[in-house]
Design a protein around this nucleic acid. Sequence first.
DNA 1: CACGACTTTTAGCTGGCACTAAACCAATCC
DNA 2: GGATTGGTTTAGTGCCAGCTAAAAGTCGTG
Lengths: 228, 228
Amino acid sequence: MPAKSRVSTESTDDYLKAILELSGPDGVRVTSNALAHQLSVRAASVTGMLKKLAALRPPFVKYEKHHGVRLTEAGKYRALEVLRHHRLLERFLHDILDYSWDEVHEEAERLEHYISERLEDRIAAKLGDPETDPHGHPIPEKDGVIAVRDEIALSNCPCGVPAIISSVSDRDSAALRELERLGLVPGTAVIVDPGTRKASVLVRIAGRPQCRLSRVLASDIQVIRQTA
Amino acid sequence: MPAKSRVSTESTDDYLKAILELSGPDGVRVTSNALAHQLSVRAASVTGMLKKLAALRPPFVKYEKHHGVRLTEAGKYRALEVLRHHRLLERFLHDILDYSWDEVHEEAERLEHYISERLEDRIAAKLGDPETDPHGHPIPEKDGVIAVRDEIALSNCPCGVPAIISSVSDRDSAALRELERLGLVPGTAVIVDPGTRKASVLVRIAGRPQCRLSRVLASDIQVIRQTA
DNA sequence: CACGACTTTTAGCTGGCACTAAACCAATCC
DNA sequence: GGATTGGTTTAGTGCCAGCTAAAAGTCGTG
């Protein structure tokens, strides 16, 4: 018998997750270069992997040379499955094992590939089927349905409009610690004040002094406008 | 730069664990064939891996052609580290996530390779630094010390000697379910009764009717004699 | 329309870890 | 002491997924 021929490996899952993230909710085509950048891998390696993913039965992506890829239904389903693992793990590590919200991402990133269906279910049950991870991102349901929300980056939010923080990026631990210190966590009501400049944004949280954020940091924050 | 050249991979860890298990507490030499059998791998593959483990800096095994291997200090330390992961995970899955004792092994077997030091510590803390896994096996300390106990297989236990079940093998789920049904769990006091035959053992638990076990099943049970 | 800039793909390697087939060593049995 | 037997090692393969270097395709702009 030959070696292992699993449909899904750590690598393939990482590619599918990256494609899902880069193609957004509408499933736009994703270029090799963008994937290479996202995955910290050379473009040549991406080409090889995309061929593999497209050659699987059933195929996980629809791939046209020189014109990028798109997830198939099967690929999207698998990507959401992995994303569910990731976000459930983050919530679990945070709520049950006292991880801080800047520590959860790294650990979940590794473990998401190795937990069984059974463990996924037990974790979800233990947590009471949570809707979001500690950064506010929605957790896909078991059937692959994920909530779509009308979010915009805080850095693009117009002055004077009341908004609620819906999620923050989990990529940068240092940024997360800073945001926590400032009270900029999901669920918080904020308003962008005048005095906003090219490089920074002035934000007001009810009952707190104003604070000034760099535009980079503000773009890590997603909000939902309260058009009451 | 070349690909990943981690000191430790899932495979190397599996080999080290297998050598530890087969060489017992005294660190006896282990043959290639025994390892091949234990790991469900061909003997040729074992040879290749042993060379690799012996060539590492520091080496994980002392390997002499045609005469088997033995763990070095570094190898033993790493093996115990993985064993600690495995047994902590088993206890965690059982106590916190409602796994039954016949389900924990398989899940822990995969995850043991992927949890960080941090997660190991958090799990140990959550559980209050447990001494054993759900099957009664001692969990190595963080520094690599593991309790040595004076166990014998129930199948070798002489008649009429009071003994306490210390651990049971976790390899066979069906056997575990059977043992649980019979009340043969770690901590239980038992006595082997006369009426024991070549193929089966007659066991008495205080306050229960006698039960007859196949010798195979009895050899999955380790006991400590109560020489009061 | 053609040239240059950038992106993408091809071709060929590397390392990890399994496999088979065949050669090799060692210990036993006449 | 030589043949048999069985465990062990060598040699050569395959697959995965990364890499570099170089070729080829796409597209904007003069």
